[in-house]
Design a protein around this nucleic acid. Structure first.
Length: 604
DNA sequence: ACTATAATGACGGGCTTA
DNA sequence: TAAGCCCGTCATTATAGT
């Protein structure tokens, strides 16, 4: 994947021009009402803010890359600037060390210093009065606000008793969210008794991160590679185990369900109809996070802990279509009255690919395909298999059958002729994943890249089933923040559900993928606005604030962060959540937290 | 002929379930 | 205990484009 957040290619990213160009491409087709006009201005400004930020941290682009890197880890800009000044730009390790030291020192410093080490807490971000805005815009803003307010007023509200003193109540809620009492009270000590739960969780997360890094540095001081190593993961797991020992019943490892049907599927029905969300997860907006289910041990525990301790819903898409796809979803959506996309997709290979039936030998017992991945079997492979089969006539001996079946399962081969196996065609993958035919075709994308983009995508029917509950909640449509959009699985799902897409802010590193979504957007005659950005690490509070200000906040944040370093088929760099690409999960967390903060401040 | 892009093939292992 | 599964990476080779 060209998605690579820590490479040298940052220098090549030209925010202003690229984004303005993309906006310009969109605006003419969809700006009949002035809203788009506003958005254009806002996005341009947003980009300008980003570059201003880079400029203000002085000393050019490599510096800003550095700053962004640490911002991404959750340190405040002031601290980063300070650390860079002390250590110089060259030595990232010593900068990080300084940053962590500041964190440690802060606890003994004066109260004023306390807030400076908060993770990502936006400084007094508020919504300004919108006198200067056009009436069009005003209307849409109000409509949106009432949308989201309505939707949340009905949800179950806190059951914490009012008799408790404030700080004990806070400890209680934090404990409910899965933090230890020590962590909670330390956070309250540091942030003060008046601190909001969000502030407190921010602090705890920062502390946890720092702690993990600390262990790493203590034992590995000499040469550290920044892009997480296996050792780093091992140490992280060690830390997990230590924590578990300290508090055995508190830190239950997440286990995968069998059958993997989450809270239910269209065919299994809703097995679970009620769940209790942690308080912190009840606040708007709705969020939906996705990643591979079979991640290294401890990864889902960490992801869950960062996402307000919401339990993952593990679902295998083989219950929705003809191909397996084991994924975990963490979301705060209601789970009653879900409904599937119609028509229901074929759920066996022979129904999905009828032409294969004729050639399917009786000794191939498969009815479902395995997970659709990013690479396919080669022509040479299927040629070898054909020759092997031809040699032994109509009834291949056991060992040949086993050889063939092993390859079939490994490469998801299907029968297309006598003794002839073939990998799936890209349009067959599109169909299995629930995308319109030719969704990824043309526009300059190579076959190889089509497979890659598709292999990295959502299964649309599965995601749509989960998101279907939004249809009643937002009859007028939604504003969505789509992180790691890929080829637009969430967008397609919502569209097929008949949920209008008002404003979609989409962040996707691959230009080919952005083109795919853009072209889908045009072809489906979307009336809303599609706003593209390329790099999640560059999405900051200012940008979000401007965007949200323009259309009244997000109703939904969707994202599946990179699985490269989690996926089982990665033999080279399965480094866990700290891996080069997979660590972008922390940007999902960071951005979600920023959005929540902005939306909550707005209400007060 | 040279360059850029696309396709190919070699590369295990951690973890779960039966 | 054994079988089966997995949103992958990288260097090399083939092909397309000029």
């Amino acid at each position: 994947m060209d998605g690579n957040a820590s490479g040298e290619d940052y220098e090549n990213i030209d925010w202003d021009t690229e984004d303005e160009l993309e906006i310009e491409n969109i605006t003419p087709s969809s700006c009949s009402n002035g809203v788009a006009h506003n958005v254009q201005a806002i996005v341009s400004n947003g980009a300008a803010v980003v570059s201003n930020g880079e400029a203000s941290s002085s000393a050019g682009s490599s510096n800003s890359k550095l700053v962004q890197h640490f911002l991404g880890m959750g340190f405040s800009e002031e601290m980063i600037a300070k650390a860079i000044k002390e250590n110089g730009e060259a030595n990232t390790e010593s900068i990080l060390e300084s940053l962590l030291t500041y964190g440690a020192l802060a606890s003994e410093e004066s109260p004023d210093e306390r807030n400076s080490c908060h993770l990502n807490s936006p400084q007094q971000q508020q919504f300004v009065d919108n006198d200067q805005l056009s009436s069009d815009y005003d209307e849409s803003l109000l409509a949106d606000l009432s949308d989201s307010d309505d939707s949340w007023s009905g949800s179950e509200i806190a059951e914490t008793s009012n008799s408790l003193p404030k700080h004990e109540k806070a400890i209680l809620s934090l404990a409910n969210m899965g933090y230890t009492v020590e962590e909670a009270s330390a956070a309250i000590d540091r942030c003060g008794p008046e601190a909001s739960i969000a502030e407190l969780t921010d602090f705890i997360c920062a502390a946890q991160m720092a702690k993990t890094e600390d262990v790493f540095f203590e034992e590995e001081k000499p040469k550290i590679s920044f892009n997480g190593s296996l050792k780093k993961r091992k140490l992280y797991e060690l830390e997990m185990r230590k924590r578990k020992k300290r508090n055995p019943e508190d830190e239950e490892m997440i286990r995968l369900p069998n059958p993997m049907i989450g809270f239910g599927t269209p065919t299994h029905g809703n097995v679970i109809t009620h769940r209790k969300l942690p308080d912190a997860a009840k606040a708007p907006p709705y969020f939906y996070y996705e990643n591979v289910a079979l991640a290294p041990k401890g990864v889902w525990d960490t992801i869950s802990r960062f996402l307000h301790d919401v339990e993952p819903e593990f679902v295998d898409s083989k219950y929705f279509c003809a191909a397996a796809r084991k994924r975990g979803y963490i979301h705060n959506l209601p789970i009653t009255n879900r409904f599937p996309l119609l028509p229901l997709p074929p759920r066996t290979i022979s129904d999905a690919l009828p032409l294969t039936k004729r050639w399917w030998p009786e000794w191939d017992k498969r009815t479902k395909l395995n997970c659709l991945q990013t690479v396919i079997g080669s022509a040479k492979l299927t040629d070898r298999i054909r020759k092997a089969l031809e040699k032994c006539g109509d009834n291949p001996p056991e060992h040949v059958q086993k050889y063939v079946m092993d390859e079939c399962r490994k490469w998801n081969l299907v029968w297309v002729g006598k003794n002839k196996l073939a990998p799936l065609e890209p349009d067959e993958v599109e169909m299995l994943l629930g995308f319109p035919r030719n969704h990824t075709r043309g526009g300059g994308i190579s076959r190889t890249d089509r497979y890659k983009s598709l292999g990295n995508s959502f299964q649309v029917d599965t995601v749509a089933y989960h998101l279907s509950v939004l249809k009643d909640i937002f009859p007028n449509g939604i504003n969505m923040l789509s992180l790691f959009s890929g080829i637009g699985g969430a967008e397609v799902a919502l569209h097929r559900l008949g949920i209008r897409l008002k404003n979609v802010v989409s962040v996707e590193i691959s230009e080919a993928n952005r083109d795919i979504v853009k072209s889908w957007w045009e072809q489906t005659n979307q009336k809303g606005n599609l706003i593209h950005f390329s790099d999640v690490t560059q999405v900051d509070g200012h940008l979000l604030q401007r965007l949200m200000f323009s259309f009244g906040g997000f109703d939904l944040i969707v994202g599946g962060s990179p699985c490269n370093n989690l996926a089982g088929s990665n033999r080279v760099s399965r480094d866990g959540l700290e891996g080069e690409q997979s660590s972008l999960f922390f940007d999902y967390f960071r951005i979600m937290d920023l959005v929540k903060d902005i939306m909550n401040n707005k209400k007060e």
